[in-house]
Each structure stands twice: as C-alpha cells, then as structure tokens.
Design a protein around this nucleic acid. Sequence first.
DNA 1: GTCTATACATGGATAGAC
DNA 2: GTCTATCCATGTATAGAC
Lengths: 216, 216
Amino acid sequence: MSPETAKSQETKTKLLEGALRTLTEQGIAKTSARTIATAAGVNQALVFYHFGSVDELLAAACRYGAERSVARYRARFSAVTSLSELLAVGRQIHEAEQEGGHVALLGQLLAGAQTHATLGPATASGLELWIAEIEQVLTRVLAGTPFGEFTDPAGLARAVAASFVGIELYEGVDAAGATAALDALEQLGLLVAALEELGPVAQRAVRHQLRRTSRR
Amino acid sequence: MSPETAKSQETKTKLLEGALRTLTEQGIAKTSARTIATAAGVNQALVFYHFGSVDELLAAACRYGAERSVARYRARFSAVTSLSELLAVGRQIHEAEQEGGHVALLGQLLAGAQTHATLGPATASGLELWIAEIEQVLTRVLAGTPFGEFTDPAGLARAVAASFVGIELYEGVDAAGATAALDALEQLGLLVAALEELGPVAQRAVRHQLRRTSRR
DNA sequence: GTCTATACATGGATAGAC
DNA sequence: GTCTATCCATGTATAGAC
C-alpha cells in the first residue's frame, strides 16, 4: 500500500490521529478524507496513498486507538479483585476517557459499520480488546462468588462492553441521565458485592435457590 | 412550515417513513435528503419544503418512530410483574425489532447527534419514551424485592435503555457476541429473580447485609 | 513521498414552472 | 403541493508535477 520509511510512518501516524480526532469531535457523519486530512495537517490525497480508502483508514484508526486505550488500563484491570472494584474502574475509565471521547468513538464506528463493510470487522476487533480485558477480570472475580457457576463471563463481558458504549453515546444527548445510569449501576454493584459477603448459611440458601431456579 | 392538508400529511408521512428506513438500512453516514426522498418515493425538494432541513426531518422521524415503537409494547410492559419477566419482554422486543432495526436506529441517531445539534434533544426525547416505560415497570417490580430500597429505578431505567441500544449496535458487527451478551443478561436476571424467591430468613440476612454495605 | 490540479459523484438548498 | 432545473459546497479518487 505504501513503503515503510520513517517519513511515511510519520504521516501515517498523523492521519491515524487525525482520523480519531475527527471521529470523536465530529462524528461518523462528518468524517471524510478532507476533514481527516485537515485535522491531521496533511494533504487530502495522502489518505488514499497511504490507506487506499477512507474506510480502510478508519478501520486502521480503530485498531490503533483501541489498542492504545486498552493498554492504558491493562494494569488497573489486572489489579481488580471484586465486582465492586471492577465497577469503580469502569467509572474511572468513563471519567478519564469521556473527555477524549475514546469510548463514544467505538459508538461512532459501530454506527458507521452498518454501511461501511470494511468497518464492521475492524470495530468488532477493537471492541474485542476491551472485552478480553473485562472477561479476564470477570472470570477471576466471579469464581469467588456464590453465583460463579451460574454466570457466563464471556457473555457478560460482551454485555458490559456494549452497554458501556451505549451509555457513553447516551451521555452525548443527556449528560445528567448518563450520570444517573452509572450511579444506579454502581449501586447495583454494591448490592452484588454485598452478596459476596453474606454469611455461610445465607450463602448456602442463595446457592440452593439458584440451583432450583436455574433448573427450570 | 407547511400547510396541513390531507395531501401534505400524506407526503410528510412518506418522508418520515423514508427517513426511518434509510436510517436503519443505510446508517446516519449515508442518510441524506436524496436517499430519504428516494426511499420515500417523493421528490428531494419536498424534504426542505415540509421540514426545512434534513436535520429537522430526522428529529421529527425520531419522535415519530419512537412513539410508534413504544406504543407497540406498552401493553406488554404493563403486564410485567417480575424482573425475569421484564428481561423476557426485553428479549422479545430485541427479536421483533431487530429485523426492522428500530432500536439500532436510536444508536444511529445518538451517533449523529454528536454533530447535528438539532438531533440531540430529539434523540433524547425519543429515548425518554422507552425510559419512561422501563422506569414504570422497574418501580413497580422492585418494590416487591429485598433490594427495592437500595436501587434507583430512574437511573436503572436509563442504564437499561442505553445498554440495550449499545447491544443492538454491537449486534451489527458481531451477531454471535450480541446473542451471548443477551443470554448472559438473561441468566443474570434469573439469578436476581431467584433472590426474590428466597425464604424469609435468608431474605432478612440479605437485606441486613445490604444495609451494612450501603452505609459505607 | 508529497503536493497541486483536476475529474466526477453526491449532497444541501432554492427558484420557478406546473 | 409537487416537480424540474439549477447552483454551489463537499466528498472520493486519480494523474502528474516536484
């Protein structure tokens, strides 16, 4: 597609950053070769020279951005030992990334993926990076709870990641509502955390009830 | 903006339907006066005659579509008496509306709202219709559970609605993943439902633990 | 490798005929 | 009310100069 010299890499990076900025600041609808090139401070034609098409640039930017964002939180994820801690980390990520819009970015890409065929797989694999982190944590954390055997970490991780993106998008149109939503989830997390700390008798009762119910 | 004759209403409706179809089938990025008019089978200039601008048409379409979708499920929502039933209804809605893409539509609008200033409030009020239904159900249902006093129905309703939109968007890039996510949530719902059916002693233990934890 | 110039398509919006 | 014609901005993509 293009050689691998130092200068080439530099403009490629500029374009990737420009694509991310345009996507977060202007949304998928206003993202074009021109707007990206302007944000990147390079010529519009270079989009096609280096990436072939706008879609492919966006796909590359998705991978690039997701990898960087996830890496930033990998250490914090691996330190999590309980559900309520996981929620706290989620809240931290929300507050830190919201400004940069790095999560709503995935929302923009998900919306764009509907038409731009190239974007679908790229967005999926970008999300997959987040999902993998969350899944690891959930597997580790749920093992020690009364409901470890009744939950599916892989599915839950997907639900958590997708929900997070949804709430991030929602924040764009109703900031107060999004805050209320996150508060409510946090409360819910505390509630589940409380179950982790039940006495042995009560835990056994809960577990027993779960077995009965899940058999239906 | 335009008179209220029968014929006027008819083309307005055509445009609204066309806008919804274009939005769901092509996404916000490919939605334009021309594509909408083609889908509606009317002339492109009528978008501006009847609605002033594309954005205003989209805003109107959002209200129109959300109202119709919510109305379709209002009866079913009001019949819900437990959390697991609520989840089941959610699953039904997912399956029924997925084909028509009426939920991912809200995702497209949320994505578009980032730039199109007019869209923000309209999308928010469209989502609000869903939220209101869910909130009513949650308030009713949670009252009868051990954790009714520890949860915030308004916030939870917002979390549920936004999450649903996120999962719906996610489905577009990874159908299997979205199914796994919904399955996991359903399992989680059964788990919570099980807590509703605990014996009085265990319930008291749970409630006690919740009070202790939430005091921190 | 990068830029300028340029082609051609698509989109927003209006004027004027019917 | 609706359609045709039209203007102009924006977008994708390529050719060719430097």
